[in-house]
């Protein structure tokens, strides 16, 4: 068996192709060599897996759909957040602890930083969690919608009545505020465009409509 044949066996084993039997039949491969090639196939599979990861957050449509991509249309207002925290009688460590209970990996230093330095990396879903912890609305904690228009297609989409309707439906289905719903659906669109898909406005709205419908509860 030459190296190219051995490589074929390793590939077949590592991909667990159902034609592995075919590859092995007639190859005259012995038990020892098969064991050796199987070990190499496991190594190959592991190497392949190590190079296949989740996409970067900003290009991950699922992350966008969950409101995990920071959005300039919905950013945490540091001063409003600090005021609300103090009024709620919570220390930064108390906020961090409550966020951790909800599954967020947040440190006391993160909370401190959001108040004193920058909070532009706080995604809409986290602002929603903060609002719920503090008994405030997202609108009370965020800087509000920026008037800076998104370029081209996204701005056209954002202004369409259909998009506004989808935002309202998403907010109801996911129990989130309108700004968070809007940022989430826009993030989804941006992530789609990042991935190289550039459908037209109608296609993008149809795609969002299908997504919203998928998470809505069935009609009573």
């Amino acid at each position: 068996m030459n190296d190219e044949e051995r490589e074929r066996v390793v590939d077949a084993l590592s991909k667990r192709k159902h034609r592995t039997g075919e590859v092995l039949r007639g190859s005259g491969i012995g038990a020892d060599e098969l064991a050796e090639l199987s070990a190499l196939a496991d190594t190959s599979e592991l190497l392949w897996l190590s190079q296949h990861e989740a996409p970067p957050l900003e290009a991950d449509p699922v992350a966008a759909m969950l409101g995990l991509v920071p959005d300039q249309q919905c950013t945490l207002d540091s001063k409003a957040f600090a005021r609300a925290r103090k009024k709620a009688g919570l220390k930064p460590s108390g906020i961090a602890s409550r966020l951790r209970q909800r599954g967020w990996q947040t440190s006391d230093a993160d909370v401190f930083r959001w108040e004193t330095r920058t909070a532009h990396d706080v995604p809409p879903a986290l602002i929603q969690a903060l609002a719920e912890i503090l008994g405030r609305t997202v609108e009370q904690l965020s800087l509000g919608t920026s008037d800076t228009p998104e370029p081209g297609l996204l701005e056209e989409l954002r202004r369409s009545p259909k998009f506004k309707e989808l935002v309202a439906r998403w907010a109801r289905a996911r129990h989130v505020s309108l700004p968070v719903a809007s940022a989430t659906l826009q993030g989804r669109l941006v992530a789609t465009v990042h991935r190289g898909n550039a459908p037209d406005t109608a296609q993008m709205l149809d795609s969002l409509d299908a997504l919203v419908a998928a998470v809505e509860p069935p009609p009573e």
């Binding site: 991909k15 667990r16 192709k17 159902h18 599979e45 392949w48 897996l49 296949h52 990861e53 989740a54 996409p55 957050l57 991950d60 699922v62 992350a63 969950l66 409101g67 995990l68 966020l99 909800r102 599954g103 967020w104 990996q105 995604p123 879903a125 986290l126 969690a129």
Partner: peptide, 23 residues
């Protein structure tokens, strides 16, 4: 929060998708 869980575990989620679909 589902978003928090996803942020933490999305690497493992994609990995299992890749390995299940690869064959």
């Amino acid at each position: 929060d589902l978003a928090a869980l996803y942020a933490q575990h999305r690497g493992a989620m994609y990995r299992v998708a890749y390995s299940t679909l690869r064959p």
